[in-house]
Write a protein that binds this DNA or RNA. Structure first.
Length: 559
RNA sequence: GGCCCCGUGGUGCAACGGUUAGCACAUCGGCCCUUCAAGCCGGUAAUACGGGUUCGAUUCCCGUCGGGGCUACCA
């Protein structure tokens, strides 16, 4: 492909503007010349190689859609490791991959990176898949398990060994292990000299050692460059890169013979799966040069790399268990809607370019672009997440909401089958009445419990506040009788009965309204009283008032 | 410690060398009112600091400070 296609200023194809990526001085200098060359001869890849650029295609560009039409579409992957649940950072990475794939009409692949025998928990895979399904992130291929693809990694290592791009290392793992990252004390960090240039690099391979590790032989004396689709051009001198391990020795704590490390596994699979764009967390950015070297050594063209900024906790450190709920499933269990969660997540580190915040999934797909991804770490703000949930709870078509609320009620043991059948209309009406006051699905089974069962308690603060007046027992007894005698159970009839009683007694209607609300639903907060009476029905209203009377008398007598 | 990245209100984003620095969440006040939400109206609140470059810098460059990442036979 032609390098000029990647140049922001040459947006004559209608490329999305590249907002935050200054060109490197070198490319700034060469741009006019380069543009001409590209236009005339399309010699860009040669130019690139001459200048040490990695010839990768930058497909966040309308051109890639043309490529797609030719059957050379975008292929991305999400590659979690089953060492824990699906956390919000991973979910966001998955979401960005998915959005990019859908936007480009490409392929989204799921791969499980389970090459660490010590830390893997196979039973966690299902939880990760569940989390992705809940978020609606459907994958087109996979899940593939690296543990089932071991021969491929060994073969790749063999190939590298045979061409001298890798060597056998006979050192015990402990020699380089531990170090600073392991000990929290923080002492002696300054002593660590980390560039591993093992003596085995130049030694004759020993036949005595049956269980060597395989290390990559980093080509010294040059630099490795790549152009991150988010962070822009970067380079690192190879001398600063260690001879990282490709294949672990049998002595490794993490497993047995010939297990690949992340670097090898990811690269071999990404080549194998023809991944065109690697979209992953920014914590991988310093791995990227190593992997580019691996691609080259394996005679493959590196994909586009797009690193997305990290998600931080409120204290601006990396989000972790310390910060409370970090797993996607905990948000599901708390009563968040996947649509809301997805919308919120999408805005963590990405923006459409304008001030729009509410995105339907189709909008998200249509508007997503790697050039809109930020380089700044983002703090996870639960308050805003709740706001999004509230918005969706209120704006989603009722029919789409009902199943989620049914699930919530089932979970709480409150669900009655007739609400899905003969009383479906009542159920829909009740949900519609309740939802303006809800923020979470769980509000339906907690706060609004009295709408779905007679088994509920009277809120203490509500009793204290609204059942205090000593006239209440008498007034509510009379109200109950009047309501019971009502020929038509309508909003206006109830309204009239209550207000007339209040007027006759010379009290504010609000006194009766508030006291009645607590008697009916046990809460100080509920939908407008007469709407509430309507969905509850006459029997229940009268019954609940009678039931509450003794408690009201007790409270008002107490003063 | 070394290498690297990132700094716009408390939080998420916008401003692509020229705006009274915009939007949203949160927060505070008002309206509405049958409680609480919602809604509407309004307020407080930011370019980390210091140098350059420029007629002009949130924007480009350098330094300082702050935060983060990496520094594993983890991923």
């Amino acid at each position: 492909m032609c390098y000029c296609e990647r140049l922001p200023k040459m947006a004559r194809f209608g490329a999305p503007r590249d907002r935050k990526r200054p060109l490197a001085p070198r490319s700034r200098l060469f741009r006019p010349w380069l543009a001409r060359v590209c236009r005339w001869h399309r010699l860009s890849s040669i130019f690139l190689r001459l200048n040490g650029w990695t010839p990768v295609s930058y497909s966040d560009h309308p051109r890639s859609q043309a490529a797609d039409a030719r059957g050379e579409g975008v292929r991305v992957r999400f590659a979690p490791s089953p060492t824990g649940f699906l956390h919000v950072g991973g979910a966001r990475t998955a979401l960005f991959n998915w959005l990019f794939a859908r936007n480009q009409r490409g392929t989204f692949i799921l791969r499980i990176e389970d090459t660490d025998l010590e830390r893997n928990r196979p039973e966690l895979v299902e939880g990760i898949l569940d989390g992705l399904r809940w978020l609606g992130l459907d994958w087109d291929e996979g899940p593939f398990y690296q543990s089932q693809r071991l021969p491929g990694y060994a073969a790749a290592a063999e190939k590298l060994l045979s061409k001298g791009a890798a060597y056998l290392c006979h050192c015990p793992p402990e020699k380089y292990a531990g170090g600073d990252s392991a000990d929290e004390a923080g002492t002696a960090k300054s002593e660590i000299k980390r560039i591993v240039r093992c003596s085995c690099r130049d030694a004759k391979p020993s036949t005595a050692d049956q269980n060597p590790a395989v290390r990559f032989r980093v080509p010294l004396g040059t630099t490795t460059r790549f152009d991150d689709a988010v962070f822009g051009p970067r380079e690192i001198h190879n001398d600063e890169m260690e001879d990282f391990v490709l294949l672990r020795s049998a002595r490794s704590a993490s497993g047995g013979t010939a297990l690949p490390t992340y670097q090898l596994g990811a690269v071999v699979d990404d080549i194998d799966m023809r991944i065109t764009h690697v979209i992953r967390g920014a914590d991988h950015i310093s791995n990227t040069p190593k992997q580019i070297l691996l691609y080259r050594a394996l005679d493959a063209v590196p994909p586009v790399f797009a690193h997305v900024p990290l998600i931080l906790g409120p204290d601006r450190t990396r989000l972790s268990k310390r910060h409370g709920a970090t797993s996607v499933s905990s948000y599901r269990d708390e009563g968040f809607l996947p649509e809301a969660f997805r919308n919120f997540l999408a805005l963590l580190g990405w923006s459409s370019g304008d001030d729009t915040e509410m995105f339907r999934t189709s909008d998200l797909i249509q508007r997503f672009s790697l050039s809109g991804v930020s380089r700044t770490n983002a703090v996870f703000d639960r308050a805003k997440l709740e706001w999004f949930n509230q918005q969706y709870l209120q704006k989603l078509p009722l029919e789409e909401l009902l199943p989620a609320i049914q699930a919530e009620l089932e979970k709480a043991g409150l669900w009655r089958p007739e609400w899905g059948a003969s009383q479906r209309e009542w159920f829909a009406r009740t949900v519609d009445l309740l939802r303006p006051r809800t923020r979470l699905l769980s509000d339906f089974s907690h706060w609004a419990r009295a709408f779905f069962t007679d088994d509920f308690d009277y809120d203490l603060a509500a009793r204290e506040k609204f059942w205090k007046d000593e006239r209440l027992p008498d007034l509510l007894t009379r109200l109950t009788d009047e309501l019971a005698a009502l020929p038509d159970w309508t909003h206006d009839a109830c309204d009239r009965a209550l207000r007339q009683l209040a007027e006759k007694a010379g009290v504010k209607a609000a006194l009766l309204i508030n006291a009645t609300r607590v008697a009916l639903v046990g809460q100080p907060v509920a939908p407008p009283l007469f709407d509430t009476m309507l969905v509850l029905g006459k029997e229940r209203v009268v019954g609940r008032l009678r039931r509450a009377l003794p408690a009201i008398s007790a409270r008002s007598a107490a003063g």
